[in-house]
Amino acid sequence: METVSIWIAAILTLGIFSFLYKDNPLYKACEALFVGVSAAYWAIVFYFDNIYKKFYEGAVTAEEPDYFLWIGAILGLLFLTRLIPNIGWVSRWPMALIVGATAGLWMVGYFVSNAMNQIGNTISNIIVRDAATGFIAWGETFGTLVILVGVLSGLVYFFFSKEHKGVFGATAKVGTWFLMVTFGASFGYTVMSRMSLLIGRVDFLLGDWLHILR
């Protein structure tokens, strides 16, 4: 059983890699299999985690049933009315709950973490002094200045209702330079970790499957 399983895993691995050459029947089969298995896997896991553990055990079989959870189940059933053409619009109620509640939840949360706290972090001493000697640390001071220019010009870039002309346009342009540096840095930072994923698969093929490594 084990050997057969490893062979299956190896063939599937090669099947996905074959996509790099071109789309082919093996990849198509792998893809179809992957979609079916994964959809069922998550459906089963969600069923046991939520419908069963959260709802059934919480609202039906519990010693002190949580009747509020029934509202969730009813809303869930209302959502399924989409399948019935004439009353399908009822499914907008649970949708309204989801969208409304999460919009409210995110609105203030993001405002605090993304806007206010970031501005708070930006407000800092420009001139950095060496903790030991008390002299100005020129390198770090330059760094804080660059950060300041980067944040401000980056923000200017994101103005939508003002034309990028004159001083404003020039500042926005500096902003795009900073954006490019960030994109480049972020890109470069990820390359290595992506390579290690490939090494993991090659290790499986050569080690677990062909026993060449190890």
């Binding site: 996905i16 996509f19 071109k22 789309d23 990849y27 198509k28 792998c30 893809e31 992957f34 979609v35 079916g36 298995v37 994964s38 959809a39 896997y41 998550w42």
Partner: peptide
Amino acid sequence: FITNSQFAYVGAVNGIIMR
């Protein structure tokens, strides 16, 4: 709907793009 598994979804969308 395709599947709520990240890479299976990507695999399927890749298929759509290539086909």
